[in-house]
């Protein structure tokens, strides 16, 4: 037999695949990046891809975000002081954990998959998906930021010394 016996992808599939791979570890899934705003995403990537990713995340927050009828239930899972009230469309209210930002995966590969990230107990960063919770990192409270957000260089390193030839030719692959 000359065909592959099985093929598993670690990074290429959907965010859910990446999440399953990350399990209960305190690390973000490989390739995932965290942004607190869409503008942060656009600094590094194509604006349209960021827009699509954030639209996806917002839709997920509405469709499958964790909702609790009582504040105590929410705080039991997400920690004291980490929940806020929301007005339901049909009247009444419910509680959700604080939305801290978005985790985006596969940004280099079309980047349409993103997940809302909530604050959990002990400043953990939590993604809720498919009825499960995944711990994807920690928020650095001193800085008011997550530990895994890419940061810009303090003294800018000279860049742009590669890539000039490609401008006349489109892609570089053959």
């Amino acid at each position: 037999m000359k065909k592959s016996r099985s093929i598993r992808l670690a990074l290429m599939g959907t965010a859910s695949v990446a999440l399953a791979a990350c399990g209960d570890s305190n690390e973000p899934p490989p390739g995932a990046q965290f942004y607190s705003t869409q503008q942060e995403c656009e600094v590094l990537y194509d604006a349209a891809a960021c827009r699509a990713a954030f639209a996806d995340a917002e839709q997920k927050q509405v469709a499958e975000g964790p909702r609790f009828s009582r504040k105590e239930q929410c705080e039991a899972e997400y920690g004291a002081g980490n929940c806020e009230t929301h007005q339901a469309a049909g009247g009444g209210s419910y509680f959700m954990p604080f939305l801290m930002g978005y985790m985006v995966s596969n940004m280099f590969n079309g980047g349409r998959y993103a997940q809302p990230v909530y604050r959990g107990p002990d400043n953990s960063a939590v993604v809720a998906s498919g009825g499960r919770k995944y711990n994807v990192g920690n928020f650095d409270t001193a800085a008011g930021r997550t530990a895994f957000r890419p940061t810009a260089a303090a003294a800018p390193t000279p860049r742009g010394g590669f890539g000039t030839t490609a401008r006349g030719f489109g892609g570089a692959g053959t």
Binding site: L11, M12, F108, N109, G163, G170, G171, A172, G173
Partner: peptide, 16 residues
């Protein structure tokens, strides 16, 4: 290179 779906898809697969 930036903004080239085919090249970036290839690299993303190799990274995988």
């Amino acid at each position: 290179v930036k903004d080239h779906a085919e090249d970036n898809g290839t690299v993303e697969y190799l990274r995988d």
